[in-house]
Computed example of a mutant assay.
Amino acid sequence: MKEEIRTSLAPLPVACYSQGILVKGTLYVAGQGPVNAVTGEIPEGIEAQTKQVLENIGHILKAAGADFSDVVKVSAYLQNLSDFESYNKVYQEFFPAPYPVRTTVQSGLANILVEIDVIAEL
């Protein structure tokens, strides 16, 4: 049985998807962009956007009773791979060792610099 995870502290879905789905102790968090759920604003620059994305993910993890130490898989999408070093600098502030496995690719993102989705084991 799957359970929807939802919080108003992260941007609410704008299409047919859930913020998170919990199935048998595994939490799947949908790709999150850098929108501030309270103000609706998108910060400027890769570091600020990465921080906002990870804060959004953190709110969804918390709503499911998890945190970043429970994350086992990360998929990250960058508008430009030349931003990798700056993105990674912020990323490592959120995830404790042992780090989750991760895939980072360049993607044709519209109007944002980064989007991230995660899988966590509770």
Rank of each mutant, 00 (worst) to 15 (best):
L109K: 04
S75D: 09
Q32Y: 05
A63I: 04
N111K: 12
F95E: 01
A10N: 06
V74F: 10
S18E: 14
A37I: 06
G58S: 02
Y91G: 02
A30M: 11
V29A: 07
L122K: 06
I21H: 00
V90K: 09
I21A: 01
M1L: 13
P13L: 09
N111T: 08
G108Y: 10
K24A: 10
G65E: 06
I5K: 10
V53S: 05
E44A: 10
K89L: 09
D117R: 13
E85R: 11
D70R: 03
F68P: 02
D83Y: 09
E41F: 12
A15M: 15
F95K: 02
E4I: 15
G58C: 00
E55K: 14
D67M: 03
K89I: 03
E47W: 08
V53W: 07
E85I: 06
F94R: 07
F94H: 05
T39P: 03
Q106V: 04
Y28E: 11
Y99E: 11
Q106E: 14
V29N: 05
D117C: 13
S18N: 15
I42L: 11
E3S: 11
Q79R: 15
I112F: 11
I46E: 01
V90Q: 05
T103S: 14
L12E: 11
H59F: 06
I57R: 04
A97Q: 12
P100Q: 02
P11R: 09
G40S: 05
E115H: 08
Q49K: 10
T39A: 06
E47V: 04
V101K: 12
S82P: 00
G25W: 11
E115A: 13
Q32W: 03
V29R: 06
A64S: 07
E121F: 13
V71Q: 08
S75W: 08
E115M: 10
I60L: 03
V53F: 07
I112R: 12
E121I: 14
Y87S: 07
V101G: 14
R102Q: 04
E55R: 13
G31H: 01
H59V: 00
V105S: 07
V38H: 12
E85Y: 06
T103E: 14
E121K: 15
G45D: 11
V29Q: 03
E4R: 15
V72Y: 04
F94S: 07
S69V: 05
T103W: 09
E4S: 14
V14C: 10
N111Q: 13
E115N: 14
T7S: 08
E41I: 09
I116W: 02
Y99S: 09
G25Q: 07
A76L: 00
T26Y: 12
V74M: 07
A63T: 04
A64E: 00
A120K: 04
M1W: 10
A66L: 09
V38E: 15
Y87H: 06
S75I: 13
V72N: 00
K62F: 10
D67W: 02
V38F: 12
S18V: 10
K73I: 15
Y28Q: 11
G25E: 12
K24N: 13
I57Y: 01
T50Q: 05
V38R: 12
E55V: 15
G65R: 02
L61V: 08
P13N: 10
G31E: 01
F84G: 02
V71E: 09
D117K: 12
F68A: 05
F95G: 06
Y87G: 01
E41D: 14
I116S: 04
A76K: 03
G31I: 01
V118M: 10
P13W: 02
K73N: 15
L113F: 00
E41R: 15
